[in-house]
Computed example of a mutant assay.
Amino acid sequence: MAYLACPDLNYSNRPVRTRMPGGVAGERPIRAVPYADPNFLRRAWSNRIMGTLYDDDIIAWSEQQAALLRAGQWSQLDIDNIAEEIEDVGHREKKELRSRLIVLLAHLLKWRFQASHRGPSWVHSISTQRVAIDDALEDCPSLQTLLDDPQWLATAYRRAVRDAQAQTQLKVFPTELPWRMEQVLSPDFWPG
């Protein structure tokens, strides 16, 4: 049986008689249960359970971790996965903002360059994306820095152009964002 790697493990060097292939008796050392740290097995078992729970049921894992945090049981926390989840929250928020902005820009491009196809569904989609972006900025004000970043906006705009071209088969869209971000997000802006 293999044990988790730990630098302070003590193994027994007591030889054990074994029968080797071909009938020759031999000796091999066996590993005893680690006893240098009396809490080793409890921690190893706890980490194994938490790792499995994290992989199998993220909701149960998150509830368990929240309870451990509130109880101040710091040594039992699944620190690596907690850190990963915290980082993922930021990534998800940024990804959602980018996705909503791409949809908004693609619809504004179609609105501007395919006026004959304007309809209530486009109005609804544009309005929905604007409200969702406004909500995201209200919930996470630090996302505003992305909307102020010319490189980030250029990337989002290129993707919006690609989507608008795929949906309309038109190749008339400007290569650079033709509007200021204040216009794009304004509920009164409808490019004509």
Rank of each mutant, 00 (worst) to 15 (best):
A67C: 06
G22V: 04
Y54H: 05
R28P: 10
L137C: 01
P150Q: 07
S62L: 06
I102M: 06
S99W: 11
S121R: 12
A115W: 11
W74K: 13
S121M: 09
I59D: 14
T52W: 08
D37Q: 01
G23N: 07
R31G: 11
G22R: 05
W61T: 06
N81L: 01
R31M: 14
Y35Q: 15
E27C: 01
R70S: 13
L143N: 05
L68G: 06
S75H: 09
D135P: 02
D37I: 00
E63T: 00
R14M: 08
L101K: 03
V131Q: 11
A83C: 09
S125D: 15
Y54P: 01
L104D: 02
I30W: 10
A44I: 05
H124A: 12
I79V: 11
G23V: 04
R118C: 12
Q64Y: 05
I59F: 04
N81C: 10
F113I: 04
L101D: 09
D55G: 05
I49F: 06
P141G: 00
N10Y: 14
R28H: 13
I49K: 00
E84Y: 07
D135W: 05
T52P: 02
L147D: 06
E96F: 02
G26N: 01
G23A: 01
G22H: 00
E27H: 02
R43P: 12
K95H: 15
A67E: 12
Q129F: 01
T52V: 00
A83T: 14
F40D: 09
R118V: 11
R17F: 10
W74C: 13
Q73M: 10
R92T: 12
D56N: 06
Y11L: 10
W45H: 13
R42Y: 07
C140P: 09
A71C: 03
P15I: 03
I126T: 11
L101R: 01
T145C: 07
P38G: 00
Q129R: 06
L68R: 05
R70N: 11
Q129A: 08
N39A: 08
I82M: 08
R118I: 09
S62T: 10
E27M: 03
V123F: 08
K94N: 14
V123G: 10
P15G: 07
D149N: 10
A71Q: 11
N81G: 10
A60R: 00
I126N: 11
R130I: 04
L77V: 04
L9D: 15
L69G: 09
A132Q: 12
H124L: 12
N10T: 13
V103W: 13
V24R: 11
G72P: 08
I82P: 06
V16P: 08
A32C: 05
P150T: 03
K95A: 13
A32R: 04
R14H: 12
L143E: 08
D139W: 01
A132C: 09
P141S: 02
T18Y: 10
D57H: 01
Q144I: 04
I79P: 08
A44V: 02
P120D: 14
R31L: 05
G72L: 01
A32L: 08
D55I: 00
H91C: 12
L146M: 07
D134T: 02
W61N: 00
S75T: 13
L108E: 14
I59W: 03
W122V: 13
Y11Q: 13
D55Y: 03
I49H: 07
Q144M: 04
V131Y: 07
P21T: 13
S62E: 15
D80S: 07
R17Q: 15
K94V: 15
I126R: 02
I82R: 03
Y54E: 11
I79M: 09
